[in-house]
């Protein structure tokens, strides 16, 4: 089976070293992480992590099982493309001067992105969206010269209606 990107969301105990435990497992098992985002969740003492993993179905199943095996990991849920709302945030510093600033502003508006910093020779653009949108804006801005970029990686949730439908049972791999 060909490799593809899969999104996995995990709730983990907010303890020292938990990120290390998880990243160490990925390294040790030779799994390929495309992106990883971590932050507080709605539950005190718990963090929510979103992984994008590259691999065939068997590899992704194995990733999920190995994650579940970690003591500090509470729940692990794979999210299917169809039911997923996903976003990524990027900050992009792009070269800009008086002659092209308007053109850049126009592009940024079309993408419903924001200019969050202006300097005589550059702009910082903040864009939120799925990876395709971020990627396509990045490609357009690269013609002006991108000098710096940082991306958060994918964060994701299951749509409300889809969540109700799947509440009857945890989708176990085995």
């Amino acid at each position: 089976m060909a490799g593809h990107e899969s999104t996995i969301v995990a709730m983990v105990r907010d303890r020292p070293g938990v990120l290390n435990r998880i990243s160490s497992m990925f390294r040790r098992r030779n799994f390929n992480i495309v992106s990883l985002a971590v932050g507080q969740s709605e539950q005190p003492g718990m963090s929510r992590m979103a992984f994008v993993v590259n691999g065939d179905d068997a590899t992704v199943d194995q990733v999920i099982k190995q994650l579940r095996k970690l003591i500090d990991v509470a729940t692990v849920s794979p999210i299917s493309e169809e039911t997923m709302i996903s976003r990524e945030l990027a900050l992009i510093r792009v070269n800009a001067n008086a002659s092209n600033r308007a053109e850049i502003t126009q592009i940024v508006e079309i993408y419903r992105a924001h200019i969050v910093d202006v300097a005589p020779d550059s702009l910082i653009v903040e864009v939120t969206g799925d990876e395709d949108k971020v990627q396509s804006l990045k490609n357009l801005l690269s013609t002006f010269g991108i000098t710096e970029m940082i991306r958060t990686g994918r964060v994701a949730m299951v749509r409300g209606m889809a969540q109700v439908a799947s509440q009857n049972g945890r989708t176990d791999i085995t």
Partner: peptide
Amino acid sequence: VDPSEVHK
């Protein structure tokens, strides 16, 4: 007993 061994 360890699900991660199944199908590994």
